[in-house]
């Protein structure tokens, strides 16, 4: 599935982050991270909880001012101001949905059009032909995006009244309304059921096919490895490894970061012995307890490793 990239246009670097470091007082949340994304790519960013993924996102989109390092979009360095970043062509969604809850679905998307329109207060007050034309064009574009995300039949509903999955979609539609060259998705499938996750996957592919590069944070590994051409792993604020899904999946440091490294000594053997003892015990009692016992053994092992 990941091989059907539409690489008709020559590869161009969309995002180039160099040496991004973010310190909060004594805590270094992100340390010297480099990342590039090219046109037509879907890049995943994974890492355990607290690894600094969202902080890194906030540095990229200007919500945080990185302590060190630069972020460049298509060769121009971005100032750390969120509205200028969006204007340049990078749009984002949020981990915990941040829609304009008391605006309608259509209005939400129209707000996303803000940087691509320029009618100010005077033209709103005078309502000349230019204003009407611009409003009509914005609405048409917004309706296209709502059709694209399958929300067009809900245009006049308040965003707050949408079900969860549709709120996520609306957030993506709103971000797309700013006509970005790079879309940053922060956990787009959090809280979704498998069908909704599949639908989101399709949506992300469709976005990529429009020529928009995507950078996505996610905890759902199946989603990430299905979707991404390249995956970067962030652990404790540092980039551990970057490569295709096979490379990342095979890297033992990644496994260690998620599951921990085994001790090189007795504790593991004892744990193993315990598991085996438990298993044989369970086999004697009957088959019911086996799975549980095995899990308990795993858990014990994990505890030992810390």
């Amino acid at each position: 599935m990941t091989t059907m990239t539409t690489t008709t246009t020559p590869q161009q670097t969309v995002l180039e982050a160099r040496g991004v470091t973010m310190r909060f007082g004594g805590l270094t949340a992100v340390r010297n991270v480099d990342l590039t994304v090219s046109t037509g790519e879907i890049v995943g960013l994974i890492g355990p909880n607290g690894a600094g993924k969202t902080t890194f996102f906030n540095c990229l989109t200007g919500l945080y001012h990185p302590t060190e390092g630069t972020v460049a979009y298509k060769g121009t360095t971005l100032p750390p101001k969120p509205h200028l970043v969006t204007k340049a062509g990078m749009a984002r969604t949020f981990q915990n949905i941040r829609l304009f809850a008391n605006m309608t679905v259509l209005e939400n998307v129209l707000v996303g059009r803000h940087t691509r329109t320029k009618e100010g207060l005077w033209s709103a007050l005078l309502r000349g032909p230019g204003f009407r034309k611009a409003e009509a064009a914005s609405e048409e574009r917004a309706m296209e995006l709502l059709k694209f995300t399958g929300l067009d039949h809900k245009r006049d509903h308040l965003a707050r009244s949408l079900p969860y999955g549709e709120q996520r979609k609306l957030e993506i539609a709103r971000a797309l309304a700013s006509e970005p060259g790079l879309l940053l998705l922060d956990e787009p499938t959090a809280g979704m059921n498998p069908q909704e996750t599949r639908a989101t996957e399709e949506l992300v592919f469709a976005i990529r096919d429009k020529g928009i590069a995507v950078l996505v944070i996610e905890h759902d590994m199946r989603f990430i490895f299905n979707l991404c051409d390249r995956v970067a792993v962030l652990v404790q604020g540092e980039k551990l490894v970057e490569g295709t899904s096979d490379v990342v999946q095979g890297d033992e440091r990644v496994v260690a970061a998620y599951l921990g490294t085994p001790f090189e000594g007795a504790p593991e053997d004892t744990a193993l012995a315990e598991v085996q003892a438990a298993e044989s015990h369970a086999a004697e009692d009957g088959t019911a307890g086996t799975a549980e016992a095995a899990e308990e053994g795993d858990a014990a092992q994990g505890d030992d490793d810390k």
Partner: peptide, 14 residues
């Protein structure tokens, strides 16, 4: 209205 609803999201929308 967007700013009233969520200023951070509004700035992130440009």
């Amino acid at each position: 209205i967007a700013i009233r609803e969520d200023e951070t999201a509004a700035t992130a929308m440009g």
